[in-house]
Amino acid sequence: MTEADGVGEAIARELRLMDPHVRTSRALARRLLDPEFVEVGASGRRWTYDDMVAALPEMEGAAAGGPRYEPSEMTGVALAPGLVHLTYTTVIDGQRARRSSLWRRDDVDGTWRMYYHQATPVPSMGA
């Protein structure tokens, strides 16, 4: 697998995590999150794997008819073999955030899983 393949796979999986169908399925979310997953959310809260899997179905972007994440400017770079860093911006329900994710490839089965995620709110231009 080339570095570009790893970046492409991480981007595809990042986008899957924004899909309401995936967000409401703990089984699907578990397949995309690394067991050592940690997130620092836009609220400043620290989330672990267990916290996120439990809460994801009730979080923003999970309702099929509700607001959805609108990602833009997504780019990625391979930091090392089996490690990809993604950066992008999202808007959901009028709230904008800059995001950063680390994806790592499992040495045993080759699956890419999100290892770390951070969201930083972006104030509105009028504020």
Rank of each mutant, 00 (worst) to 15 (best):
G41P: 02
T111K: 15
R104T: 12
A55S: 13
A78G: 10
D51A: 13
P121E: 01
T75R: 15
H21V: 15
A78L: 15
S100N: 02
D19T: 09
T2W: 11
Y116T: 14
A62H: 03
P121Q: 00
E9D: 12
A42W: 10
L83N: 04
G6K: 14
G66L: 10
F37S: 03
E14S: 00
M125N: 05
T87Y: 05
A27V: 14
H85K: 14
P123L: 03
T2R: 12
D5N: 13
A97L: 03
G8L: 14
Q95T: 14
M52S: 03
G82R: 08
R16P: 01
S43C: 09
Q118T: 01
T89G: 02
V108F: 10
E70F: 06
P20G: 04
L79A: 06
G82M: 10
T87E: 06
E73A: 14
A62N: 06
L56C: 02
D93S: 11
Q95P: 03
T2E: 11
R16H: 06
R104I: 09
D19C: 11
P67A: 03
D107M: 11
A42D: 03
E58Q: 15
L86Y: 01
L83H: 07
I11N: 01
T120M: 01
I11Y: 04
G44P: 04
V7Q: 07
Q118A: 05
P71F: 02
H117E: 03
S100D: 00
R31S: 15
R98G: 13
G110W: 13
H21Q: 13
G66A: 13
R98S: 14
R23V: 00
D50K: 09
L28P: 01
P20Y: 02
S100C: 00
R16N: 05
Y49H: 15
G76W: 04
G66H: 09
W112F: 14
M114Q: 05
A63W: 13
M18Y: 09
S72I: 04
A10C: 07
H117T: 03
R26M: 01
V108K: 04
D19W: 11
H85F: 12
M1G: 10
T24M: 01
A63E: 09
E36W: 11
V53G: 03
V91R: 04
V122H: 00
E3F: 15
A64F: 08
V91T: 03
Y69V: 08
P81K: 14
R13V: 02
R45H: 09
G65F: 08
T120K: 00
G76N: 08
A4G: 04
P67N: 05
E9G: 08
S124R: 13
A63C: 07
R23W: 02
E73M: 13
A42C: 05
E36R: 14
I92A: 06
R16I: 03
T24N: 04
T120V: 00
P71W: 06
V122W: 02
T2A: 11
A27M: 11
G8F: 14
G8R: 15
R105D: 09
R45M: 13
R30D: 11
W103G: 00
Y116H: 15
V91Q: 02
E70T: 09
P71C: 07
V122I: 05
